[in-house]
Amino acid sequence: MNRYVKLVLMEMHRFWKLYAALILVTLVSQLGGLYLTLRKYMNGVNGELTLNPQTYTDYASRFGKLPFEIAMSRAALWIFGPVVLCIAALLLYVFLIWYRDWLGKNTFAYRLLMLPTARMNLFWSKLTAVITFVLGLVALQIVLLPVHLTLYRTLIPAALRPAESPLVPFVRHDPIFRTLVPPTFLEFILYYGAGVLAVTIVFTAILLERSFRLKGLVGGILYTVAAAAILVSPIILVTSGADSLAIYPMELFLLELGLGVILLAVSLGLSRYLMNRKITV
């Protein structure tokens, strides 16, 4: 097992308790919240049935059915609350995964920087860990959806459910799920790839701060702002177009892709330089 893999395992192990807590919160909130929402609905239905005895079918023709999407949107706070929490926690950890090595009296950074391994492996292992944490939560959400659907089918009688609602259209049409799980695999790679680029840029800014302290903090912020400006500038130039600057959407897309790749390479190169030559404990 090479040292990069060992570092990845170490990074994952350091976070696993918090990660497990996030997973647990997600499970409890989503499943519990959906259960409560469905129960509340059925209580309402059964209450009506007690007052005016009728079949579920009659009820449905009078008051309508409860489609899966509506049930999910009624439970939206329970479903998306933990998603927001997880995103916030991971965003924070993008910073903490570095700074925790320096915080307090236990400067673990000494140990890591003295390892007989390329210093970039520290960078790669932290990046790998963050990517794995993010994708793990996405995978968890994907796996939870059929569970939600089953819970819905169990609690809501067939007469009150519209015909089949397969999950793929549900994800495609729900505005939030569609963002977490993009419609095509190509888009998944592009959007999460952009996320990897963003994390890489932030890591580079962090390394600037760790190398030059206060000056580095300013430098890091400027670097992040400059990177964002470079990525946004073609889009702004195009939409304010005099006709001769006009570029085709596909060309703009490829340009953005190219800029992203260049920014990634520059960030990685700069990070490598900082880690090997400038970083200070």
Binding site: K105, N106, T107, F108, Y110, R111, L115, P116, T117
Partner: peptide, 16 residues
């Protein structure tokens, strides 16, 4: 990086 197997450092801070 290879020289870290040849030179060890005991700093004055806790490093674990």
């Amino acid at each position: 990086k290879h020289l870290y197997e040849k030179v060890a450092f005991v700093p004055d801070v806790i490093t674990m």
